[in-house]
């Protein structure tokens, strides 16, 4: 019973994610695109929950929907011209990008097929959040701090570009 439920949930969520991803690149109204993007993020968060990765799911919602999508919407509304009329999402380079995207898909599928997936014999970890926290501050503390520095650099860069010099 459990297994069937999980498979059905996976296909529903994956279907929502794929359909809304297609909508993101095909709808003509930018705001509609961003709302579809939010739906896709939500479906992916649902997929994480079916994999018992609740922490990642919550962070996915908190950051991608709560911050990234909200900022996208904010910026689109600030540049009102974009919402006034429907905009074509494609230009004359359509053909080339289709070929490139197809190549990328081929590459990914080949890699996925050739990888031998190790199925871990361990049981499902009960409290993944504290495990992740411990690992982030012990084994992976250096990469973790490095990512923070990268983010800080982005922040400073944005401020430097946006600020008006007073001289």
């Amino acid at each position: 019973m459990e297994g069937i439920g999980q498979i059905i949930t996976f296909y529903i969520l994956a279907g929502i994610a794929v359909i809304s991803a297609i909508l993101v690149i095909s709808l003509r109204n930018l705001v509609h695109c961003v709302i579809s993007l939010a739906l896709m993020m939500l479906a992916i968060a649902g997929l994480y929950i079916t994999l018992f990765a609740e922490f990642i799911a919550m962070v996915q919602i908190l950051i991608y929907i709560g911050a990234v999508v909200v900022l996208f919407l904010f910026l689109i509304m600030l540049t009102l011209r974009l919402t006034d009329k429907d905009i074509k999402q494609t230009n004359e380079q359509k053909g080339i990008s289709f070929i490139l995207a197809g190549l990328l898909l081929f590459l990914l599928v080949t890699v996925l097929n050739r990888t031998s997936w190790n199925i871990s014999p361990e049981a499902v970890v009960e409290n993944t959040t504290s495990k992740i926290g411990n690992l982030l501050l012990t084994t992976y503390v250096f990469p973790f701090e490095l990512i923070s520095v990268v983010l800080l650099a982005c922040l400073i860069g944005a401020i430097v570009i946006a600020r008006k010099d007073k001289d």
Partner: peptide, 8 residues
């Protein structure tokens, strides 16, 4: 996480 959806 849930609270951040409402603003959309």
């Amino acid at each position: 996480a849930v609270g951040s959806i409402g603003v959309i």
